[in-house]
């Protein structure tokens, strides 16, 4: 129902092209995003929307050759910007890059995902830019990719019990940190810190034995 209504609202959005006007600075746009994140500021979002919506519509129209799909892309992209502005990290790239990657992900799913097959690969699997916790796996991977996992098994007996249990479940039983947290009834943060401490200790043991 909503889609129908949306189609009515957004039909014939494009009338005629006008030349490019000035582009906004990254600092200014980042300022708008932080206002939206902090206070759901409508004025800041309106300004951001008026800047990006026409540009995204042009991008979508080039990609899809269809103005209706393009306007769905604009709406979905900007809806994510409105609700997820807190996930923008200025140190990882410019606001325009962040918004482009959101639109790129939505486009990927529009083109690829079959709505009847829930298990299809989605853009979030490749570029999890809108995941609430974005550090976890990447940090863990960076932290322990140099540790030979097979070696862990011979050292982990020497860990304190509470760390050993966590390491056992993650590395021998293949559970996720969330599953370990649920299973043991301890906070996720505790699982993470015990994992980190244990890996640190294991790395020391491996280094001194090598």
């Amino acid at each position: 129902m909503q889609l129908m209504q949306q189609k009515e609202n957004t039909r014939n959005m494009t009338t005629s092209p006008v030349p490019t006007d000035g582009t906004e600075s990254a600092e200014h746009l980042a300022g708008l995003l932080s206002k939206i994140a902090a206070t759901q500021c409508r004025a800041a979002f309106s300004e951001l929307f008026k800047y990006f919506a026409p540009r995204l519509l042009a991008y979508g129209t080039r990609q899809f050759g269809n103005e209706q799909i393009a306007s769905d892309l604009v709406q979905e992209t900007m809806t994510n910007v409105w609700h997820k502005a807190h996930l923008f990290k200025a140190d990882k790239g410019s606001p325009a890059t962040w918004i482009f990657t959101i639109a790129r992900n939505i486009r990927f799913d529009f083109l690829r995902k079959n709505k009847h097959r829930q298990n299809d690969l989605s853009a979030d699997d490749l570029w999890p830019i809108l995941a609430e916790t974005n550090e976890g796996l990447d940090d863990d991977y960076a932290l322990d990719q140099n540790i030979l996992l097979q070696q862990i098994a011979s050292y982990y007996q020497q860990l304190p019990d509470n760390q050993r249990v966590v390491i056992e479940q993650i590395y021998l039983e293949g559970k996720s940190q969330q599953e370990v947290s649920d299973g043991l009834g301890i906070p996720l943060g505790t699982v993470k810190s015990r994992t980190r401490l244990a890996l640190q200790k294991l790395r020391e043991m491996i280094e001194t034995h090598d």
């Binding site: 014939n12 959005m13 494009t14 009338t15 092209p17 026409p54 540009r55 519509l57 790129r104």
Partner: peptide
Amino acid sequence: MAEQLTKAPKPRLN
């Protein structure tokens, strides 16, 4: 690609 997005001529909207 983000720069291309911001610099491309944009349509006048309803």
